[in-house]
Write a protein that binds this DNA or RNA. Sequence first.
DNA 1: GCAGATTGTCTCAGATCCGAGACAGAATCG
DNA 2: CGATTCTGTCTCGGATCTGAGACAATCTGC
Lengths: 257, 257
Amino acid sequence: MANAPAAAQALALLQLLARHAEPMPGAAIARQLGLPRSSTYHLLGVLSDSGFVTHLRDERRWGLGVAAFELGTAYVRQAPLQRIARPVLARLVDATTHNAHLAVLHGRDVYYVIEERARGRPSLVTDVGVRLPASVTASGLAMLAVLPPVQVRALYPDRGSFVQRNNLGVTSLTALRSELAQVRKRGYAVETSSVTTGFASIAVAVLDHNDRPAAGIAVTYPVDDAPDAAALVDAVRSAAAELSTRLGRPRAPADPR
Amino acid sequence: MANAPAAAQALALLQLLARHAEPMPGAAIARQLGLPRSSTYHLLGVLSDSGFVTHLRDERRWGLGVAAFELGTAYVRQAPLQRIARPVLARLVDATTHNAHLAVLHGRDVYYVIEERARGRPSLVTDVGVRLPASVTASGLAMLAVLPPVQVRALYPDRGSFVQRNNLGVTSLTALRSELAQVRKRGYAVETSSVTTGFASIAVAVLDHNDRPAAGIAVTYPVDDAPDAAALVDAVRSAAAELSTRLGRPRAPADPR
DNA sequence: GCAGATTGTCTCAGATCCGAGACAGAATCG
DNA sequence: CGATTCTGTCTCGGATCTGAGACAATCTGC
């Protein structure tokens, strides 16, 4: 399918603004998008007419507008991912008898969108609406592992970007990269006690049709249970593959060697 | 400025999806946007490639994607409106000695993005992050009053759309329209005790360069204080005009006759 | 206060896109 | 089970856009 280049550029502009902590000057937007200045101001005009972008005239900068906010909250309300994921997680919970959850990557955080509790299992901190640092969660590591390295680097520019939890979790980009290499090698991510002391998680990324992480799916079990990890891995992987397929990805994630 | 029609259409598509409670079939999207089917699938392709839209293949529907979510939360994080509004609200609080807040319209709710407390005044329910039904708040009424009537009707399709608070607030579209007509006539909105018993608010909409409500700005005072309402109205109106100008609107809102 | 830099607007023609409609596959209906 | 409808993909030429660069206004630095 051919592109609608102006549409793609407008979306890229929005994503550029979303990645920055502050509104940006028009020329910086053009530069970072690699667009002619006239085309950029053209797009900014279209985006501001529809409310996606706000021109802060006195600061001579451009930032996201209320329509961007509305889009984000409509996503949460409409919950397209959850609609198809909920039955998948319900089956995963039934099959494994452990809690399962679904999270989306959100900057350096994960944001939990489904928490499915197994019968007789305790509620966990990974409840819907909660955010946790991606680098200390299995879901987060699974998703980070399938991002291009430059994007991981952009997320973690310095040691100050890292947050630990329960005194656990990597604290440098080198350590993170090493961790992510292991995730890729295994085909799944794990964490033990860094989210909830005494609990461990196994997670796999759910990939969209462009092989980007749409979500991470995980099960959490008490360390003392010592369950059949290989069986859990298979179950989580199957669930992730099913979700990917339903999101339009042509095939399941490659099995590890 | 001429249009980039594909960009504008892509944004319109996103807003259409945001307005619907559920993902939509491709042909329905085309129909409601008044676009040729091939152009619509074209745009859906661009939008799904960038993650703004998700194709739910089994349901044969299209819904918002994770990139939409990221945009919304980037808006909240970046807070372009708050950046320029905060000093304006601080001055408003100083000048009036009452609490002031800023809210954005969000479907049938208002969402509070700034709460500026005056010295010696109590904290109110209208704290940052809180949502309240627009029809029971002064800020909400002020913003609804500047929406086109068809948009107001779309927000409130039936009596079930209305929510009261403290047994106050309109409960029908006819009553709402009447209320909004009064808001327009006065040039500001008021509510008494429908948000917090014993407190009243005066609000004015902050308009963007297309005369759409970017936010509502309000002061809240105890009813028993019986402050100089005309002075409060002037102060709120000035603050709203200042914000509108900084958002690129050419002139302040017209004074009422 | 002035020169230079930056921001934002505008023009218009060569380059490129958009969309009517054909087509194929899948789902629905009787 | 076959007909009909719906979904999604694809082609290609007439219609329209994109972007180089000129210009004006504003800001910054000296």
